[in-house]
Design a protein around this nucleic acid. Sequence first.
DNA 1: AGCATAAGTCATCATCTGTTGACTTGGCGT
DNA 2: ACGCCAAGTCAACAGATGATGACTTATGCT
Lengths: 194, 194
Amino acid sequence: MLTSMNPTRRRDRAATRAALLDAARLRFSRHGYDGTGVREIAADAGVDPALVFRYFGSKKELYARAVRPEVPEGLADDTGRSAAELADTLLHEVVLADWEEYGGEHPLLAMLRSSGHADVREQLRAQVCDGYLRTFAERLPEGAPELRAEMLGALLLGLGVMRSVVGSPALTAAPSEETRALFARMVAPLVEEG
Amino acid sequence: MLTSMNPTRRRDRAATRAALLDAARLRFSRHGYDGTGVREIAADAGVDPALVFRYFGSKKELYARAVRPEVPEGLADDTGRSAAELADTLLHEVVLADWEEYGGEHPLLAMLRSSGHADVREQLRAQVCDGYLRTFAERLPEGAPELRAEMLGALLLGLGVMRSVVGSPALTAAPSEETRALFARMVAPLVEEG
DNA sequence: AGCATAAGTCATCATCTGTTGACTTGGCGT
DNA sequence: ACGCCAAGTCAACAGATGATGACTTATGCT
């Protein structure tokens, strides 16, 4: 029997680290890197601020560990699907999904708030281009596949921004069938020949 | 004869204010509100930091005066043009134009870096929805014009983000004819009936 | 020339920032 | 029961932050 897995868990390294990471992820996402203080994160996690440096060394390192946009693995190897199907998957992944750990928006969108820092911009570029768009570009017919892939990326990112940052009424209220249909018709020119 | 309109102009209220505004606009755009210090702005303007508060009262007020996204007046009254033509104009305005005063990107994109603040988000929403997209929505056929307009907004914002923040290679390098053509084909489903 | 006033300077404030190191406390193995 | 080591606490640091007010200096008018 475990000695004490009690309600007020005390002195649990892993749990404390996790609480810190969760709180950091949320605050960094909502308020950006510069708008977030170490003491605020620690307070949210119910933990002493000094532990941030005990466990992560610096605020910067904590940011790097907390907000890590992970490219879904379902993309790279799933060779059976067409470019159009893939775009629809990405629409759900990037725009429609909730991502509550990141304050309700996709990590890549949250990172825009910290894009004053070159590190963050570089990570953004790598994730978007090498992560998400590469596999899409490979399924495209000849004729500037990179440009087409990047325009899909633009549409996805833009929809996310409109929904979670700008808060435009129609897109925020109705992320339903009509949006999906219009999206599909806009993507169509990208996957066609020509 | 004006007493002294000399090379090293000194003690010129209007010029100092303007220098401060210019420097603030650039730094706020590049590094966001929280990433920018009053002393840095003043240093860029070659001016004492205390003058920021003399002339603007607070950092917040300076931000408000410096970065004010202005909806181009050419949009509202220009009734002769089709929705498609209007979209093309917006492409140039928002995505392709240089906006060197704002660090090379459209003010609305620069504001994303400060979107952790509710004031900024609200200004973004107002500018995008009430400013840019309204006149576009009015030129649309029936059938959810707001949603269609917002999807155009998404594409525009997304293209801007891809170019100036993410820095995706194809879009950054070649903002030329091919981009314009693909854009037009993506916008087509938005302006059509059905 | 001299004066009044606006424009610019300076030192300084209180607070907040990330970060550190020395201290205390709790839990586990013996 | 005891002692060890990891986990957590605390006070304090140096520097940056936004902001203030008293001071100085230039400029334009008479």
